[in-house]
Design a binder for these strands. Structure first.
Lengths: 145, 145
DNA sequence: TTAGTTTATATCGTTCACGATGCAAATATA
DNA sequence: TATATTTGCATCGTGAACGATATAAACTAA
């Protein structure tokens, strides 16, 4: 009974599981360089544009600052980023890449392709990727309200 | 530069974000009954089949027992499940629903539809759901290795 | 200018996730 | 039957997530 409660009919469980397993696929590649997956996401944001306040990084990742702040402090302790008070707005903490943080981009150059290949299969191919991206983006937009 | 490192090109970030946001959509509905989303997943498993050892629940959710054990202890403390040593195999802990745990199914009867409606949009409809499910299932199967 | 409000970040507490490790019960092997 | 291995679960430590709350700087309005 209760078809609607079956695990097989749950979108959220699939997203939750796919997310966890794919994050696990990153783990050995990132762990080698002392990084976690959320820290890698911060690097993606800073590689695109260096020197951003905490709030901009959090917004870009759709996370709260109370998640990002401790994460950034760990990255600062690892010497990957620096955090300094904003000049024009003293409330802001500006996060900048160190040389170590910048150099990680070269060291992680194979990561996107390696992980990308790990998910390729019958229904998930370079051709079907865009359609999947659109659906996930729409779900995200819908839930951001 | 470095198209491959752009956040917009990352499948994992989309899965991670969609999973988090959809879990957040469950939060008010479940919180009303003192439940978290992972606890709700355990209930889905036990509503399908009551009285399962910890290992079977963990396998069904593709989680480790060291994640599930503390979670079950919290649910036991809430009076939602009981945990008792297995009769035939004393290593096993058999998890059973209490009346409170069974009764929650009625109280949460609207949850699947409410959350389901929350994700409906242009590209995600009852018609496109099956295709999305297949892709996510394939990704999950691929990564389970 | 002062008082009230908003904004940016930080702190705290709770609950996952998960790698590493420990331990006892069950099973396999010598 | 004694010993070794495997299995099932638990414990510990670390790093997210996130709600609630705090604090200081910036802004707004009286």
């Amino acid at each position: 009974m209760e078809e609607k409660f079956k695990l097989e009919n749950q979108l959220c469980f699939r997203l939750y599981t796919a997310s966890r397993l794919l994050t696990q696929a990153y783990h050995p590649l990132l762990g080698e360089h002392g990084l976690t997956y959320p820290q890698y996401l911060v690097l993606l944001v800073l590689w695109e544009k260096d020197a951003q306040p905490v709030n901009d990084i959090a917004k870009r990742l759709l996370l709260e600052t109370n998640t990002v702040t401790p994460l950034l402090k760990r990255m600062e302790a690892e010497g990957i980023v620096t955090r300094s008070k904003g000049k024009e707005d003293a409330r802001q903490m500006i996060v900048k890449l160190t040389k170590k943080g910048r150099d990680l981009q070269q060291k992680l150059t194979d990561v996107p392709e390696t992980v990308g290949n790990a998910v390729l299969c019958e229904s998930v191919t370079p051709e079907t990727f865009p359609g999947l991206f659109v659906m996930l983006d729409d779900i995200i937009d819908q839930l951001k309200q």
